[in-house]
């Protein structure tokens, strides 16, 4: 459905994309995972035909993003990173506006957005600018869907949204997937990634890895420990000198420690105790995508 072949994009001397290739199959919920500044937005703007690639080629439903941009604009639903609906129009007016611009009506495609729009309905006479972040995002999604797109492109839809709305949002994406919609979503959040069918990890304009979230997590090459102590900073400092240590990162209230396979739990414990660190808990864990990402970026 979406085919990206060796796309590069340069802004003067800055290389935003350095030869990106991946493929999204019809009906997939595909995640493009990467930190800020990794080139996600440039790629989205190329796919929506707003930007020309410096080289390479991208097609959506076999339409070339450069040559067939007019066709692309009919089949794509796009939600830019920044909320870009009219703040001074009401929820209903925004929806009607985008339906009209796409030569359709809200009634015609109401079934597509019914589930989402029901949550917005109580606020339909409220101006978009006065909505909460989560509601704005639902409205933006409704507007992106109103013309029955074949492909949905969502650029960091969950950035700046509270955790509850974020969860709701992913549920909506799953429901949309059941209607056969192909969705490409970018996000800097690793826990979003686990909800996708397939993900591409991107950094500095390069794709690091493409696989299913489960496979990616399973591909983690080292032994991983979760270490809970009173102070992550001191623990990380102490672990620096641990024999057989590969990496250690702070993960919320714990530290994820990667070691060579030969290192037993006891020797980690002993090392920490020797360094005057009080251990609350230490256990071997399975790697998450985030661990893989940190490993790839190392």
């Amino acid at each position: 459905m979406i085919k990206v072949e060796n796309i590069t994009k340069n802004y003067g001397d800055v290389k935003a994309l350095k030869g990106v290739s991946f493929e999204v199959k019809k009906g997939q919920l595909y995640g493009l995972i990467g930190p800020d500044g990794s080139g996600k937005t440039s790629l989205f703007r190329i796919l929506t035909s707003l930007l020309m690639p410096s080289s390479g080629k991208a097609t959506l439903s076999d339409y070339d993003t450069v040559k067939d941009y007019k066709k692309i604009r009919k089949i794509v639903g796009y939600m830019p990173e920044r909320f870009s609906l009219y703040m001074d129009l009401t929820v209903e007016e925004n929806l009607n506006f985008f339906a009209t611009v796409f030569n359709t009506t809200v009634e015609e495609n109401y079934h597509l957005i019914e589930y989402i729009y029901k949550m917005l309905e109580p606020f339909k006479h409220r101006r978009a600018g006065a909505l909460s972040g989560g509601m704005k995002q639902k409205l933006a999604l409704s507007c992106a869907l109103i013309h029955k797109p074949e492909v949905l492109l969502l650029d960091e839809p969950t950035t700046g949204v509270d955790p509850v709305s974020r969860k709701e949002f992913w549920e909506m994406l799953k429901m949309l997937q059941e209607t056969g919609l192909t969705t490409l979503v970018s996000t800097p959040f690793m826990d979003d990634a686990e909800l996708c069918d397939e993900v591409a990890l991107i950094q500095d304009g390069n794709i690091l890895k493409i696989d299913t979230p489960a496979n990616i997590a399973a591909s983690y090459p080292h032994k991983l420990w979760k270490v809970v102590t009173e102070n992550n900073y001191n623990t990380l400092k102490a672990l620096d000198k641990l024999d057989g240590k590969i990496s250690a990162f702070s993960f919320g209230h714990s530290v994820h420690l990667a070691t060579e396979d030969r290192v037993p739990e006891d020797s980690i414990k002993k090392h920490l105790v020797d360094n005057n660190i009080k251990i609350e808990n230490i256990e071997p864990i399975k790697a998450s995508i985030e661990d893989v990402f940190m490993e790839l970026m190392r």
Binding site: L50, R73, K74, P80, R82, S84, V101
Partner: peptide, 13 residues
């Protein structure tokens, strides 16, 4: 400036 042009530009208008 407010970014709505981005949304408009991807429409077939």
């Amino acid at each position: 400036e407010i970014g709505t042009i981005e949304q408009l530009n991807v429409t077939p208008i």
